[in-house]
């Protein structure tokens, strides 16, 4: 199993590396002034992960900018969660017409500010190679600045349920954006039907993706409500669920 870079190790407060799997105490984010690209097949949960990641980084005292780079699919993007993010002190850069009725794929000029800031920067890429193509325009500057690229995968999505298929999608993404993934995030889940075994059943899959892609598995995510029920010898990143439909939001309505 490939090992994590020093940057990732320090970012995630790895306590030890056992068989190449990193053990994490408190998930925060990639090191000072880091730039993290979050990519993956569409529907794997990139956006929900990116939102958690940004909020955790902000809560740890960092200045954080989250860029919604999904200009391919205008539904369930991180721009819709700008209010939650901004409340947490995260600066959000959204596509020019995000959350509107227009389908005009344009990034704002403020996008370039990420190359001129000390903020921790998180780029939430669009799905697949099509969504990642947008990154290509910035790849030279991203490489100059230095980056980590987390590849989010979910065993319960039909197009990535086989490790080989998942790695194929990763390769397509890398070819489209000109950047290389540096770690895998196992985000295998079944939305509200996720139970501890949903995640433990996916660990072998996640390790195969990591091995076959030649990059480390940084951790598996777990909904916070069941975080305590998972084995202690693996690394898990607890998530709050932000991306939901209107009837799932569960706010008291009376």
């Amino acid at each position: 199993m490939p090992a994590c870079s020093d940057a990732l190790k320090s970012a995630f407060f790895c306590s030890s590396c056992d068989n190449g799997i990193i053990h994490i105490r408190i998930p925060i984010s990639v090191g000072p002034n880091g730039l993290t690209v979050v990519c993956g097949h569409y529907g794997t949960g990139k956006t929900n992960f990116a939102i958690n990641y940004a909020i955790n980084a902000a809560r740890s005292g960092k200045k954080v900018t989250l860029v919604d780079m999904d200009i391919v699919n205008p539904y369930f993007t991180s721009s819709e969660y700008a209010e939650i993010l901004e409340k947490e002190g995260v600066k959000v850069i959204s596509p020019s017409f995000a959350t509107t009725n227009l389908d005009i794929p344009a990034l704002p000029a403020s996008m370039y500010s990420i190359f001129d800031t000390d903020d921790e920067v998180i780029l939430d890429a669009g799905g697949d190679n099509v969504g990642a193509t947008v990154l290509g325009r910035f790849s030279r500057k991203i490489i100059e600045r230095g980056y980590e690229m987390l590849y989010v995968t979910n065993m319960y999505r039909p197009m990535t349920s086989d490790p080989e298929d998942s790695v194929m999608i990763l390769k397509e993404i890398e070819n489209a954006c000109g950047l290389k993934a540096t770690a895998v995030v196992n985000n295998s889940h079944l939305k509200e039907l996720t139970v501890p075994s949903t995640i433990t059943d996916s660990l072998q899959y996640a390790k195969e993706v990591s091995r076959s892609a030649g990059i480390p598995l940084v951790f598996s995510t777990v909904p916070r409500r069941i975080a305590g029920e998972l084995p202690a010898d693996e690394c898990f990143y607890p998530l709050d669920i932000h991306v939901r439909t209107v009837w799932e939001k569960g706010e008291p309505i009376w």
Binding site: Y42, G43, N154, R157, P158, K191
Partner: peptide
């Protein structure tokens, strides 16, 4: 493929 999978509505229409 696992027994239960996560599908987007549009994908489900196509796969079905």
């Amino acid at each position: 493929m696992p027994e239960k999978i996560l599908m987007k509505g549009n994908e489900a229409l196509a796969e079905a």
